[in-house]
Design a protein around this nucleic acid. Structure first.
Lengths: 325, 325
DNA sequence: TGCAACATCTTTTAAGGTTGCCATTTGGCA
DNA sequence: TGCCAAATGGCAACCTTAAAAGATGTTGCA
């Protein structure tokens, strides 16, 4: 594979001149520019990123760490991230932690080795120590760390409030809240807080179904939901922590001959594409995934440029009413 | 950030010794090993991948190019790829071409610059010239190139055959086949071939609804489906090229008051998670995404090791009967 | 005992492709 | 002639690893 040196030789110039042409720096005559262009084309030259980043001490790569790639919420997040990253000249190094600490930590180490420009960490669980002495920016999504990284979240609390208010307004009196992960603590827990506050105020009881991260990672809640709904036939309103859970609730209701929304009303969270593909379509809390992704990439970009970041950014959610309420 | 040199200094050794410890090569005394380990921990040292890959002239990174990240089929593909790549010590550089030639080609160039170990290209559309003079392996998924790259596909033709046979066996006599992209030519087109062969043999007419890649990328077929089903009330069987299309067909049928499976039967393709979240659940052609992903990564691994690859690998599909037939 | 042959461990040296800085050359203009 | 702008060249540095060479220690045998 051709190197800068080869191009320089071919064009009858030195590497520094060619480098300057490539990076549009300093004085270059049009003639030189042309010669370099021809040499590059002739030799099919591609700049060596390794050498470049070795010299520059950084890359244009963002380490994107997610717990789950095929979960529609993260799939959409990744998709948006990639698009905004690309717009800003960044590439994405995709790291799937699969909900395990070890893999997450190993990927963080790897990102450091790769000298990524920064890390965007989505609702993970790595021990804080890994971030000690890190000299690159870390932006968290739906996760708040105590060590000074900037965080982007949606208004989880408000999501819980909206869901509770809606369910109660629809006449539900025995609620179920599904999806909070017992073993992790994250901003999404605030959904429960908001939900609880409204329920308490309106004196409507609710059951909280705390799940494990393995369920989260396998996206398999059916059994849990079936046993719970069977054991509690009084339940008439469900607030699920994701549309995936809500969609599975729908299937379980069908299996148990519980009509939705007549007997049980359901509200999901996220508003991803499956929300409009179920029957009935899901009423859900819309998360502004696109805006959140854009914000995260922009913040990372600002941080790289040395700007000071807002410590915590919370974006609004809203209720999208469809057919399950 | 600490370098190898710093570690060597801290441990009272030279860089090459430390390097040998890190890479487990040559003779190293236990004492040295211990000292190096301590120094690394103390300085929080992370090897510089850029320097490493500059020296080694290659990386452990796979360039994964997909047309679409949030499409459930690709999301699942990416998820599997990442898992198998990780198992084999590779990292994933995620490239989303968004169905555009330009972006795909730019990403290919970028992969060359990054000196990736190899490229896995999923059903893209880049001009072949981009691959001229490439010295790294390229594995294609669901795409067959004439220039000697190895390809992994599912038995698309058989998928079409199974779908047609099933629909006809269910009594359908006016079929619709949706999803073939008119502007691209790819292995998935064989689904149509298989479908057509069976229809011709059994003398069952079918309409082919050729779509554009913009629809594919936006996952938005509703309007097209609605107008087609309205214009052709005789249609009683639909073979969709993906579960996403099938799920949207289901919604359109509901809107048009067409009962599924009584009046119209539907068969999807892929067998991704939404297939079990619709009501009724989708009968679909199962693609062995996991096996295909594993195969692609393994083939890439073999290619890197210099092994000769099978030119074209076709994995079997099967029909999963659920509730839309 | 003396020393060659070998095993074990470490250092020295060079290379890999790019960029930033400083030096040099050329031509134009006061 | 002196000065400046425009254009290009020379060289070190970034961090790691491979290969060769050097430095010890150990064994075997005359």
């Amino acid at each position: 594979m051709a190197t800068l040196k080869d191009v320089a030789k071919e064009a009858g110039l030195t590497t520094s001149t060619v480098s300057r042409v490539l990076n549009n720096r300093g004085y270059i005559s049009n003639n030189t520019r042309k010669k370099v262009g021809e040499a590059i084309k002739k030799l099919n030259y591609h700049p060596n990123e390794a050498a470049r980043s070795l010299r520059m001490k950084s890359t244009n790569t963002i380490g994107l760490i997610v717990p789950h790639v095929s979960h529609p919420y993260f799939a959409e997040m990744i998709s948006n991230m990639e698009a905004f990253a690309y717009e800003n000249g960044y590439k994405i190094l995709l790291c799937n932690s699969q909900c395990t600490h070890e893999k997450e930590e190993e990927y963080i180490r790897m990102c450091l080795s790769y000298k990524v420009a920064g890390i965007i960490l989505c609702s993970g669980s790595a021990a804080l120590e890994v971030f000690d002495g890190i000299d690159i920016p870390v932006i968290t999504m739906e996760r708040f760390l105590d060590n000074g990284t900037a965080s982007v979240e949606c208004d989880n609390r408000q999501g819980g409030v909206l869901a509770a208010e809606k369910l109660i307004a629809c006449g539900c009196r025995h609620l179920l809240h599904v999806g909070r992960i017992g073993t992790l603590s994250m901003p999404a827990d605030m959904r429960t807080e908001g939900f609880k506050d409204v329920c308490d105020k309106k004196k409507v009881p609710f059951i909280e179904l705390i799940t494990e991260d393995t369920l989260y990672c396998n996206m398999e809640y059916s059994e849990l939901l079936e046993s719970t709904l069977s054991a509690h036939p009084e339940i008439d309103g469900v607030f699920a922590n994701s549309d995936v859970i809500a969609a599975q609730t729908l299937q379980v209701c069908r299996k148990l001959n519980i009509s939705v929304p007549e007997k049980v009303k359901i509200i999901g969270f996220d508003d991803v594409n499956i929300a409009t593909l179920t029957t009935p379509q899901l009423t859900t809390i819309h998360q502004p995934v696109k805006e959140m992704s854009k914000m995260a990439v922009n913040m990372l970009h600002d941080a790289v440029a040395g700007k000071l970041l807002v410590r915590r950014t919370v974006l609004p959610v809203n209720l999208i009413e469809r057919e399950t309420t």
